[in-house]
Computed example of a mutant assay.
Amino acid sequence: MQEGTVSCGPVPGPVYLDHNATTPVEPDVVAAMLPFLGGEFGNPSSSHSCGTRPRAALARAREQVAALIGGSAGDVVFTGSGSEADNLAVRGTVLVSGVERPHLITQRTEHPAVLLSCRALERLHHADVTYLPVDENGLVDPADLAAAFTERTVLVSIMLANNETGALQPVRELAGLARARGVPFHCDAAQAVGRIPVSVDDLGADLLTVVGHKMYAPKGVGALYRRPGVRLEPLVLGGGQEHGLRAGTENVALAVALGAAAELVAGDLSDGVPDRTRELRDRLHARLDVGLPGRVALNGPSGARLPNTLNVSIDATNGHELLTAVPELAASTGSACHSGSYEPSPVLTAMGFDAARSLAALRLSLGRGTTAEDIARAADLLVARAGG
């Protein structure tokens, strides 16, 4: 297990609490993929001997990813990113539906890959989209979803865990509402897979997004689970790879890396890593509360959230300025930079928070290698700077 203080370049790095942005690539994952960047260069579709081991490795990786989410290997489609998987799920379902003015349902705090796919479908394909509100914890009310269905509804897309607050949506209940109406349900589980147990059958998801760089694999690889019988229009046409849903010769090295990472985090789940991570997260929150009494407000639910995610606003601070003043800590803020200015997070705004609270937000996200020493140092750094 790597230390929480990681190197982001040629020199020793800061305490790294930005695992929801990306995770370090684990050495075992690198070791698994390296042979397929060199000697095992063959095309997995080739019938001669050079394709034999790449083809077997690709099949093994598919099995590893499927095992992590409780699916079957034949239902896993490798993609180049989580955003591509989201696009394939959302646009692919709508384009194959044949419904005039198709209707989709999502919610306001979804990942931009889903939200912008919906906007594109509105603009280019005359789709109607319902964007469900969320409450102060960032959660969708199942009653709002139940009221939103129409005869033209072809897809519901609701993420499992929010990338900023870690809030866990009631996906099982939401998917059940969709299934009762015969509507496919897509779940972006990028932040959740590997951090909590995820089962496509338990959730009732027909389509589910997995992302490599959120679970210790490199960037540039993801996967989409597709339940048998769910039809999709491919976004990339060509040689018919990936069950005809994603043309192009597969990147075997990255698929192998994703498979190795899936096996790694599956071991973490069975070894109690989420519980240890939750304890460290709560210790960090408590230290901030003690060091900055009455000034720390939790953004998101206290219970139903990812074990690694702490999103807090520190009163009388600006999150961006605070992190800039603490270069020894790598974390994220609740704001987005546009042309040099900072705007409140759309997620926190949708939850009803004012600009001051949103701009004061910090997202502190832990990983499998975060230590108690990292937590103590991060808290001391923030308290010293915010208290000054």
Rank of each mutant, 00 (worst) to 15 (best):
E3W: 03
E3H: 08
G4F: 03
P10D: 13
V15C: 13
L17W: 05
A21R: 05
T22C: 12
P24M: 13
V25F: 01
E26V: 08
A31N: 12
F36Y: 15
F36T: 09
F36L: 12
G38P: 12
F41G: 13
F41Q: 14
G42C: 09
S49L: 14
R53H: 10
A56Y: 02
A57N: 07
L58M: 12
A59P: 06
A59H: 07
R60H: 14
R62N: 09
A66K: 00
A73F: 06
V77Y: 00
F78E: 04
T79F: 00
N87I: 01
V96P: 03
V96L: 09
R101A: 15
L104N: 02
T106W: 00
H111L: 05
V114H: 00
S117D: 03
L121N: 05
H125G: 10
H126N: 14
T130I: 04
P133F: 06
E136T: 13
L139E: 08
P142G: 09
P142I: 03
L145R: 05
A148Q: 06
F149I: 10
S157T: 14
I158C: 10
A161N: 12
E164P: 00
A167I: 12
V171S: 05
L177K: 02
A178I: 10
R179N: 13
G182H: 09
V183A: 06
P184Q: 10
F185A: 11
H186C: 10
H186W: 00
A189K: 04
R195P: 08
S199E: 12
V200A: 07
L203F: 05
G212W: 01
K214T: 11
M215H: 04
K219F: 01
G220W: 04
V221T: 07
A223E: 02
L224I: 08
Y225V: 03
R231K: 14
E233C: 05
L235P: 05
V236G: 05
G238F: 05
A247M: 04
A247H: 02
V252D: 09
A260L: 08
A266M: 04
G272Y: 10
V273P: 04
V273T: 13
R283E: 15
R283W: 07
H285N: 11
R287E: 15
D289E: 15
V290T: 15
A297Q: 11
N299G: 03
G300C: 12
P301G: 06
S302H: 09
S302A: 15
R305P: 05
P307V: 03
I314T: 07
D315W: 04
A316G: 08
H320G: 06
A325V: 11
E328Q: 15
A331V: 10
S332I: 04
E343S: 04
P346H: 07
V347S: 06
M351K: 00
A356G: 13
L359Q: 07
R363D: 15
R363E: 15
T371K: 02
E373P: 01
D374L: 02
A378I: 08
A379W: 00
A379H: 00
L382G: 07
G387D: 14
G388S: 14
